[in-house]
Amino acid sequence: MARRAAPEINAGSMADIAFLLLIFFLVTTTMDTDIGITRILPPPVKNKDTHVDVKDRNVLKILINSHDLMLVNGKPATVENLPQRVEDFMALHPNDPNFPEVKEEYIPELGKKVMMTKGVVSLKNDRGTSYEMYIKVQNALAKAFDEMKDQESMRYYGVPFKDLVNQKKIDLINKLVPIRVSEAEPENVGGQ
């Protein structure tokens, strides 16, 4: 009996099948990496009546109304020069009564006392403020603090903050330049 050879499977269409699958994955793939501004919310307050008094000179008040207009310490301002304002405000001016107070703080990692500003940026928006404007302001604040971190990083380690790899060094810079932004409960003046 003549033995028939096992019929060969035609592999010619394999490439086509693979192509089909490839195109499917190409189309469904989302390569987007999630990016954004990370913030830590303040822990919930237990007692609502606790009132912390902060001296007026220590606070940079930013107000945004429902028409997306901004006031910085009572005067109209734009997002473009906000980072500079914040940096000026947070810089150390030990003997100037127009700028926030400074205090000495002992940093164990450095083994010495370091001058730190007591300044706080207070951000208050209306319930009718657009999210776009809010992010613009948050972005401007982030820019200011990032630049200050860069300065400190250059001073102590000679490299920009984003080039630091050592977690201890990163933590130290974060400690030297804390993101002091306080968000007040929004008002509902403009209506929604």
């Binding site: 999630d34 990016i35 954004g36 990370t38 913030r39 830590i40 919310l41 303040p42 972005n139």
Partner: peptide, 16 residues
Amino acid sequence: LRKSNALKINYSTRKG
């Protein structure tokens, strides 16, 4: 989120 102690948040944005 604050009340439920989920304090780490991220405002998703596009790269501008």
